[in-house]
Design a protein around this nucleic acid. Structure first.
Lengths: 165, 165
DNA sequence: GGCGTTTATCTCGACGTCAAGACGCTTCAC
DNA sequence: GTGAAGCGTCTTGACGTCGAGATAAACGCC
């Protein structure tokens, strides 16, 4: 089955036959698929009255394990946003009652962000919904193909995740 | 080599051993890799004084072939942004002299956006730079692995590109 | 122990995007 | 032809993010 990248690559080969556009076969698909996934995630989360950015913050806290608390600084390294953005996000999540700010007992400069019980439940429900949807998207592939794909992608992501920041 | 998704999956297995989080092995890697690619692209384009959104618009026109012109409507279906955003983008590109607005001779409601000579050159240069960078990222994989990866990704993107919008 | 540097968080202004709606032109049925 | 509906583009206001800077506390060197 043909996809949009096949058409895009064909157009480039017509317009720029001098260039080798083979890299686009892989990386344009990655970017476009990510875009589709963003939309699908937004839809899945809306059933739980959550925005994608809310899910990102809540699940980072959820994954931390009991007592489900992290500093704003830890949150922003995990979510790859800037500090101003994170302050804003925490404000809004706190207003919705999904997290609460606590003073850090060991550092008076810092605060700790803790998941409320409701925040934890919402994160758990949204994760279950997300996994269900993702399983449907991946049903195009066999178990072996999924493992193969995960392995190839890991080879590409590992340099980014390990060498720089 | 381990990557960030391995750590993320391990955390979920610890916190939610009841859930099957296998889908994340593939799709979280896709999303995270796309994010890294966005940053890398931004860096590559900055050498040519172009923003990613400028590259998207200019190359859409470039791929159209001579005389390198499309309507705003065609541009927004290709770039997946809204009409207000596209108006704004065209304004800024026109101000920089990379595109020009022409009245559509066959429909007085419409306009045509045409690449200037400078716009075409900048698009070509930026594309060459992008491909060079992407080749470096993909050097982790053999030619056969790249083809395998492209094929697997196509199976996932094709449903999005063909069935809905 | 004082002083400069580093670290953690928040504040503020600018910017790009989106969604909804306004406006003008075209198309088509009658 | 005329009126209504459709289409293409632009305008507007709200929102989320970023980046730079402010503030305050902690650290470390001497």
């Amino acid at each position: 089955m043909e996809d949009e990248v096949d058409r895009l690559v064909a157009a480039w080969r017509r317009e720029r036959p001098d260039l080798d556009v083979e890299p686009l076969e892989v990386l344009s698909r990655v970017s476009r698929l990510a875009r589709h996934l963003d939309r699908a995630r937004r839809l899945a989360f809306s059933e739980h009255q959550l925005e994608p950015w809310e899910f990102d913050v809540l699940t980072a806290l959820r994954r931390a394990g009991t007592p489900y608390q992290l500093s704003p600084g830890q949150l922003l390294t995990q979510t790859l946003v800037t500090s101003g953005t994170m302050t804003n996000r925490i404000d809004r999540l706190a207003k919705k009652g999904l997290v609460e700010r606590l003073p850090d007992p060991s550092d008076r400069r810092g605060v700790l962000v803790r998941l409320t019980d409701e925040g934890r439940d919402r994160a758990d429900q949204a994760l279950a919904g997300l996994l269900e949807q993702e399983r449907a998207i991946l049903s195009e592939l066999s178990r072996a193909q999924r493992a193969e794909l995960a392995g190839l992608l890991r080879q590409l992501t590992a340099p980014f995740d390990n060498i720089p920041g």
